[in-house]
């Protein structure tokens, strides 16, 4: 019994050492020699906005929080909230899109794939339409009879509020 316990202990100690060597560090610790430019693909079901274009930085609103992505970022998959996708093509050219939600895949080779259902440049939105739709959604959220209708209206409220704050920046 004692022997068995010792073997288990040795095994777990060995495992701990092994686990320590495979710990992953922050993005700036990624292997050097990769491209220092981020390659972005930004696609909608009906349109390709960027196809493997070299950009400097992309800022997204993920469900885990807002994040900025540079080249050599740690690989990750992020779910997008309805919010701004900000693309810094170079230090002077910044493009802002409002995406309805989707996914961003940060690949190990400094490429970034963003998929969304709808995304439009901020200037395509009408503040007037947002205001009326927000008021309507808020009314439905508080007066709807079924829980599902209320939930739908609350999602819409969230989208319009995100749009409002995006346009007020």
């Amino acid at each position: 019994m004692n022997f068995l316990f010792r073997t288990v202990r040795t095994a777990s100690a060995a495992f701990r050492i092994k686990a320590c060597t495979s710990v992953r560090y922050y993005a700036n610790e990624a292997p050097a020699g990769l491209s220092d430019r981020l390659r972005l693909s930004f696609a909608l079901p009906h349109q390709t906005i960027y196809a493997n274009a070299e950009v400097q930085q992309v800022n997204i609103a993920s469900t885990a929080g807002d994040m900025g992505i540079l080249a050599n970022h740690v690989p990750s998959i992020e779910q997008l909230k309805p919010g701004i996708v900000e693309i810094l093509e170079n230090p002077t050219t910044i493009k802002r899109y409002f995406a309805s939600g989707g996914f961003a895949m940060i690949n190990p080779n400094s490429s970034l794939d963003i998929n969304a259902i709808e995304a439009f440049p901020l200037e395509d939105f009408s503040l007037e339409a947002i205001r009326t739709n927000l008021a309507e959604a808020q009314r439905i959220a508080s007066t709807a009879s079924t829980e599902e209708e209320k939930a739908e209206a609350r999602i819409e409220v969230e989208v319009y509020e995100a749009l409002q704050s995006a346009l007020s920046k």
């Binding site: 939105f125 947002i130 739709n133």
Partner: peptide, 16 residues
């Protein structure tokens, strides 16, 4: 369904 609702809301917020 959630993404569908979000997409519809975004479309309805556009200029005419």
């Amino acid at each position: 369904k959630y993404t569908q609702i979000c997409a519809r809301a975004v479309r309805n917020a556009l200029k005419e």
